[in-house]
Amino acid sequence: MKQILPALLIGTALLGVQQARTVHAQAASTPKVYELRIYTATAGRLADLESLIGNQGLRTFAKHGIQNVFDGTVLEGAPIDGADASNMLVCIVAHKDRANAEKDWTDFEADRIWKNALAKAETNGPLLSKPTASLLLDTTDFSPALESPTPASAPTRIFELRKYNTGPERLQTTVDEFQQGLGAILVDVGMKPVIYWTADNRSSFVYLIAHKDRETARASWAAFGPKFRPFMAEFNARQVSTTAPPSDSNTPPRRRTPDDNRFLVPTAFSPIR
């Protein structure tokens, strides 16, 4: 795969950003737009990548209006990750608004101090094995307020980033499921939703949740199932009573099989830990 070294943190995926539908746009008073970025380090270079971003990267973020929200390495990857999981750094950042998102990365890329730091870090070879994956995100109306930075004395939690690749056809239904009950069930079984988003391109529903540790996460998901099934039976019954079944046999099923979920360990420089 052709490597795009100068584009380590370039927001190339920000070009041609579509405006989000009202259902998943942030309120006008809080137009902040988030961005999920997944970096895949060259084998053996993850620590170098963390050092670069955790030091000069964060300073350059702040200089150009990019808010660092969460950073984590992968404890358990998604099936689609394969061997790349152990080399991934997952970052969530925020921009003042959609109009500034592309400009933020343009300014970042042109920053002389950043360019020098990147060049020095890549003296012995490229840090990345593939281009950065980027996805703009809008918070939902029912998303919790963003946590304050975690105190240094607080225990480090395990996080779970779940990305449901619904496609535009099924996005609204998934939003409704969480708004009308699934979000409350997550809390009821001991999980802590950090934030809910919809992808700006309407491809997916994304959320970040916190667990005390991996064993607690297993117990929470085990408790989730018995509550999930009756809720979905009731939800589906309401849908059937108000919506005719799809006439096109090629329409994908309403329920999706998540294939993009990861357990993450926050880095030392992650504001939320």
Score class of each variant (00 low, 15 high):
residue 238 R to F: 00
residue 203 S to H: 12
residue 232 M to T: 06
residue 205 F to R: 05
residue 235 F to I: 05
residue 226 P to S: 04
residue 228 F to Y: 05
residue 260 D to H: 03
residue 190 G to L: 07
residue 243 T to S: 11
residue 248 D to K: 06
residue 241 S to L: 15
residue 221 W to T: 01
residue 260 D to K: 07
residue 205 F to C: 11
residue 254 R to I: 13
residue 233 A to K: 13
residue 239 Q to C: 01
residue 265 V to W: 08
residue 211 H to P: 02
residue 222 A to L: 12
residue 204 S to W: 05
residue 257 T to S: 10
residue 262 R to K: 13
residue 241 S to C: 14
residue 229 R to F: 12
residue 202 R to S: 05
residue 221 W to M: 05
residue 232 M to E: 03
residue 264 L to V: 10
residue 194 V to M: 09
residue 246 P to K: 07
residue 199 A to Q: 11
residue 201 N to L: 01
residue 217 A to F: 09
residue 194 V to W: 08
residue 230 P to T: 01
residue 219 A to E: 02
residue 236 N to K: 15
residue 193 P to R: 14
residue 253 P to Y: 09
residue 243 T to E: 12
residue 261 N to F: 10
residue 205 F to Y: 10
residue 245 P to V: 15
residue 248 D to G: 04
residue 239 Q to G: 07
residue 228 F to N: 09
residue 208 L to I: 06
residue 228 F to I: 04
residue 239 Q to L: 10
residue 203 S to G: 15
residue 257 T to F: 07
residue 223 A to R: 15
residue 204 S to E: 03
residue 243 T to H: 08
residue 233 A to N: 08
residue 259 D to H: 07
residue 191 M to C: 11
residue 217 A to G: 02
residue 233 A to I: 06
residue 198 T to E: 10
residue 213 D to M: 08
residue 258 P to E: 13
residue 226 P to I: 02
residue 230 P to S: 00
residue 201 N to P: 01
residue 262 R to N: 10
residue 231 F to E: 07
residue 241 S to T: 13
residue 242 T to E: 11
residue 219 A to F: 00
residue 238 R to Y: 00
residue 247 S to C: 03
residue 203 S to D: 11
residue 194 V to I: 15
residue 240 V to D: 06
residue 234 E to S: 11
residue 194 V to Q: 05
residue 207 Y to R: 01
residue 204 S to A: 15
residue 205 F to D: 06
residue 208 L to R: 04
residue 254 R to D: 08
residue 264 L to E: 03
residue 223 A to V: 03
residue 205 F to H: 04
residue 234 E to G: 06
residue 219 A to D: 00
residue 251 T to V: 15
residue 210 A to I: 03
residue 199 A to L: 13
residue 265 V to E: 08
residue 188 D to S: 14
residue 241 S to D: 14
residue 246 P to Q: 09
residue 191 M to D: 04
residue 239 Q to N: 03
residue 250 N to T: 08
residue 220 S to W: 01
residue 210 A to F: 02
residue 188 D to Y: 10
residue 249 S to E: 12
residue 249 S to A: 15
residue 248 D to L: 04
residue 265 V to Y: 09
residue 222 A to Q: 14
residue 215 E to I: 04
residue 248 D to A: 08
residue 189 V to N: 03
residue 263 F to Q: 06
residue 232 M to L: 13
residue 234 E to A: 13
residue 261 N to R: 11
residue 196 Y to P: 01
residue 238 R to P: 00
residue 251 T to Q: 13
residue 192 K to I: 07
residue 213 D to W: 09
residue 236 N to F: 12
residue 224 F to A: 00
residue 233 A to T: 11
residue 252 P to N: 11
residue 251 T to A: 15
residue 249 S to F: 12
residue 225 G to H: 02
residue 189 V to R: 09
residue 226 P to C: 02
residue 247 S to L: 10
residue 220 S to L: 04
residue 242 T to I: 11
residue 262 R to F: 09
residue 232 M to V: 12
residue 204 S to P: 02
residue 215 E to P: 00
residue 255 R to L: 12
residue 215 E to D: 03
residue 206 V to C: 10
residue 190 G to Q: 05
residue 247 S to P: 00
residue 191 M to K: 14
residue 242 T to K: 15
residue 213 D to N: 11
